[in-house]
Simulated assay, not measured.
Amino acid sequence: MNVLLRDKQIEIISALCEGIGQRAVARLTDTDRKTVARLALRVGRGAAELHDRMFTGIRTNRLELDELWAFIQRKRRWHQKPGADGAVTGDQYTYVALSASSRAIVSYLTGKRSSDNTDQFIQDIRARVIGTPEISTDGYHPYKNAIRDAFGNRTAHGTITKTYSVTHLAVTEASRRYSPAEVIAVARDVVSGVPAQISTSYVERSHLTLRQSCKRFARLGNGFSKRLEPHCAAVSLYVAYYNLTRVHESLKCTPAMALGVTDRVWTIGDLIDAALATQPIAPVPTAPERRRRFSVIEGGKA
C-alpha cells in the first residue's frame, strides 16, 4: 500500500487549514485529488477523537454559543419538500461553544438546527465543563430549555437578539443574506441568574475565521461540501488546528495554551501524528487480479 511521505502530508494539511480547496491543494502539491480527500477525512476523524480526549475537565468563566450556517450538496428550497436525504443534505449548522477568556472552542456539533441537536450540544458542553460558567446565546428558543436541563436554574444565562433593517422585501430574514443589513436594535435579556456580561461577539468573530480557513464555508463559491461526513471531518480538522496550532493574535499563544489544555504550540506535524494515532489501521484487500494463485505440486519421494 502506498503511503504519503510525512512532509507531503504536512504540506497538504497545512494548505487545507489555510482555506485552500481540495482540487487546488491537489494541483499545488502534485497529488491525486482522491488522495487529498482520503487524507483530509482520516485526519479529520482523528482530530475529532483528539478533541474528545483533550478537552475535558475545562474551567472557564464565560461561554459564548452560536451557530454557523452552511449547506451540503444543495441549499434548502423553501418551495420544495425535503427529500429522503434531507437529514444529510441542505442546510447544516455548526454549533460552537467558545470560551470568552481563552478564545478556545470547547465544544462543537454539526447538524440540523433542531431542538434535539441543541440539547445534544448543551449536554456535551456540560460533560466537558467543570462548574457553572456564564452562558451567552442568541435568541434561539431551544437553548433556554436545554441549558436549564443541563446546568439548572441557577446558571447565569443571557440572550442577545439583533434586529436588522430589511431593505429588500423578497428577503424574509435579513440576517441570512450574504451582506446583512444594518443592525438597528440589540436586545439583551436575562433568562436565569445574574450574568455579568451578555455578548456573542467573540464567537461571531470566530465564525469569520472559520469561513476564511475552510473552503467549504466560503460564500458564493463551488467549494461547498457534497457529503456530510467529509464536512464534519473538515470542521474537526479546523477546530484542532485553531485550538492547538494557530497562535491567536491578541493572546500571543494558542487558545489551548490559554485554556491550560497544553503547554506548547503544536506544529502541523504534531497534529497529524496525534490525529492519525487515534485511527485504527484498516486492512486494504488486494485486488483479485493481483492476488497470487497457488497450486499444489506433488513432491518427489525421498
Rank of each mutant, 00 (worst) to 15 (best):
V43N: 03
Q73P: 00
L65N: 03
L65P: 03
G57A: 07
T35N: 11
L68Q: 13
L68T: 13
L63S: 03
K75L: 03
R38T: 02
W69P: 02
M54Q: 13
D52Q: 13
R45W: 09
G57R: 04
A37L: 08
E67S: 02
P82Y: 10
G44C: 11
E64A: 09
D66G: 00
L65I: 08
R59G: 06
I58F: 04
T60I: 13
E64G: 05
A40F: 08
N61G: 13
P82M: 08
E67I: 04
E67F: 02
K81G: 10
R42T: 04
P82G: 11
K75G: 06
I58E: 07
T35I: 14
M54E: 12
L68I: 14
F55V: 10
L39F: 07
N61Q: 06
G57L: 01
A70H: 03
L68S: 12
D66I: 01
W69A: 02
W69G: 00
A70N: 09
L41D: 07
L50D: 00
Q73I: 04
T35F: 04
R42Q: 11
R38G: 00
R74W: 01
R62N: 08
E49N: 07
E64M: 11
I72H: 02
E67G: 01
T56I: 15
E67P: 01
G46M: 05
T60Y: 07
I58R: 04
A37W: 09
G57S: 10
T35W: 06
R53W: 08
L39G: 12
G46E: 10
R59I: 12
R38N: 11
R45N: 09
L41N: 12
A70P: 00
I72M: 06
F55N: 00
A48M: 10
G83I: 12
T60R: 03
R45G: 05
E64N: 05
T35D: 10
H51C: 14
A70G: 11
G44F: 13
H79S: 06
K81I: 11
A70Q: 10
L41H: 06
D52I: 05
R74L: 02
R53F: 12
A47L: 12
T56Y: 03
V43F: 05
R53S: 15
L63K: 00
G46W: 11
R76V: 05
L63I: 04
V36P: 00
G46R: 05
